[in-house]
Design a protein around this nucleic acid. Structure first.
Length: 475
RNA sequence: GGGACUGUGGGGUAGCUUGGUCCAUCCUUCGGGGUUCGGGACUCCGAGACGCCAGUUCAAAUCUGGCCAGUCCCA
């Protein structure tokens, strides 16, 4: 197996090599940006989905599933929305040999599929709030270079759509989504920023957008999710109306919450190291790998011990895999480290004799666990591993930002920049030009470093109404 | 939309300038045998490729044209 490219100096090459060699995705499908989910990648995805479902349902959202095709006239109803997505939709224009009278859009996102039906579902204030989500594939005709998980044309998409009685209730729903994502990210071990996007960069059709971004080295960031407040921008054109208790008619205010397999890419990007992927136990395809180490003349004793330990762990609800292949132990270590398995148990003659197994976690720490209390020992190691993996990610996160006080500091920056911004669009664009990237927006929950209070806008120098904003190069 | 570049086994590559010594190199991978086995073993046997279509030529991975795919830069 070849050495991986260096993560610091050749991040993209490193990322692609890890995704490929860890067998998370097969990009050799014949359509650009449409990759195959491998068995190993699917395992990770299921845990990702499980956590998203757990946290969103805890906030009272219910699963639904809408069709993938949207009639063109429905798609075109909200004019900002279609302007934003026009250039990146796939069209279905033929049925068999005939041209379709009404062309169909393959959903790039599902507002325009769902809201005509919301108009039927919502009649009374008693129908509100309406909180539903779906996990489906969406399609976007991406013209730039595609990357597994990070930029794809067929997206594994989580999207919540809601209707609330009024703007305040919708704002409350946005808060609830932010809190739900906080819990999801906790499970993924991912530190991130919640940023209110500048107006020129909000979701097409939204009143405002809050996006989640993570630093991925240098001045680059990756958006891993977003929450949008639509006000009644969609409920009006789609005719969603409810009758209030006093008999008056109102358009509900809507929100959405979107996540995708980018989260998986983010987990690889953030936690991975020179040896390959590193998964927190919460989403690891396997939490534990058992490697038997045969000795001459032991007649398969270590193999059967390893097998029995694996089934004990399975019975305890752990995801364990036994690697009893013919490779030498060292080769197996490399392979499972590349694959990112949090904990390895080595079972050989020494272990069999002593009643202990050797445990090595993916951060390289070696301990022994008494076989008698195997389940508890594994639990403890995985808990410590998750905690310390998170701590390492937090440390890297804190180091990823620097305050900039002059526009001139932004060019060629090796960090994501925290800047004072007066809020004016012209200044925002000046900042974007200076960093050759984007003004990501204003932190919802405070800046990622503790820079004190901003004194003036980095672009115009004015001091009234200045707040902190983040400038970076979106990946 | 404008420009530049690149396509060789599953992955990565050599060969291309100057056509022939190429039924195509090396690493990895994959299948089988043997010896091994506490951090990527060794060895033997075997499998697997010149993006597509034309053209030039006695002869094309190599030259020419078109197409397709991909990458990068600029708008």
């Amino acid at each position: 197996m070849a050495e991986l490219p260096d993560k610091r100096t050749a991040f993209i090459d490193w990322y692609l090599a890890v995704v490929e060699q860890a067998n998370l995705s097969d990009k050799r499908y014949g359509v650009k940006g449409m990759n195959v989910w491998t068995p190993y990648g699917m395992r990770a995805r299921r845990h990702l989905d499980r956590i998203m479902i757990r946290e969103i349902e805890a906030t009272g959202s219910q699963a639904v599933e809408f069709p993938a095709l949207i009639p063109a006239p429905e798609f075109a109803k909200e004019k900002e929305h279609i302007k934003g997505f026009d250039a990146q939709v796939f069209w279905v224009t033929k049925g068999g040999l005939n041209d379709l009278d009404v062309p169909l859009v393959l959903r790039p996102t599902s507002e325009t599929a769902i809201y005509p039906v919301f108009a039927l579902w919502v009649r009374s204030h008693r129908d509100l709030p309406l909180n539903v989500y779906q996990i489906v594939n969406t399609f976007r005709y991406e013209t730039k270079t595609t990357r597994p998980f990070v930029r794809v044309r067929e997206i594994h998409f989580f999207e919540e759509h809601t209707c609330q009685v009024d703007e305040a209730a919708a704002t409350e729903r946005v808060r609830s989504n932010l809190a739900a994502f906080r819990k999801m990210a906790e499970a993924f071990g991912l530190p991130y920023l919640s940023l209110r996007r500048p107006d020129w960069d909000k979701f097409a059709g939204a009143h405002y957008s809050i996006a989640f971004d993570i630093p991925v080295g240098g001045a680059r960031t990756l958006q891993i999710g977003s929450v949008h407040h639509y006000r009644d921008n969609f409920s009006k054109p789609y005719g969603i109306v409810y009758e209030a208790a006093d008999g008056s008619q109102h358009h509900p205010h809507q929100t959405t919450f979107g996540l995708s397999e980018r989260l998986l890419g983010a987990i690889v990007a953030v936690h991975g190291d020179a040896k390959g992927a590193v998964f927190p136990s919460t989403i690891a395809p396997y939490e534990i790998v058992l490697v038997p180490i045969p000795s001459p003349g032991d007649a398969g004793a270590t193999g059967s011990l390893a097998r029995s330990l694996a089934s004990r762990l399975e019975r305890a609800g752990r995801r364990a895999v036994l690697d009893d292949g013919d490779d030498r132990p060292g080769a197996k270590y490399y392979r499972w480290e590349l694959a990112g398995v949090p904990l390895r148990l080595e079972v050989g003659r020494r272990e069999a004799a002593s009643g202990n197994v050797t445990a090595v976690d993916r951060l390289g720490r070696k301990t022994t666990i008494a076989i008698e209390t195997l389940e508890a020992g594994v639990e403890e190691r995985l808990t410590a591993f998750d905690r310390d993996l998170r701590a390492a990610a937090d440390a890297a996160f804190r180091d990823a930002f620097r305050v900039a006080s002059e526009l001139g500091e932004l060019a060629g920056s090796d960090r994501v920049r925290v800047v004072g911004w007066c809020g004016k669009e012209a200044c925002g664009h000046a900042i974007e030009t200076a960093i050759d990237g984007a003004l990501l927006g204003v932190p919802e929950e405070g800046p990622p470093v503790a820079p004190g209070a901003p004194s003036k806008c980095i672009a115009c120098g004015e001091s009234t109404g200045v707040r902190w904003a983040l400038a970076a190069q979106p990946l």
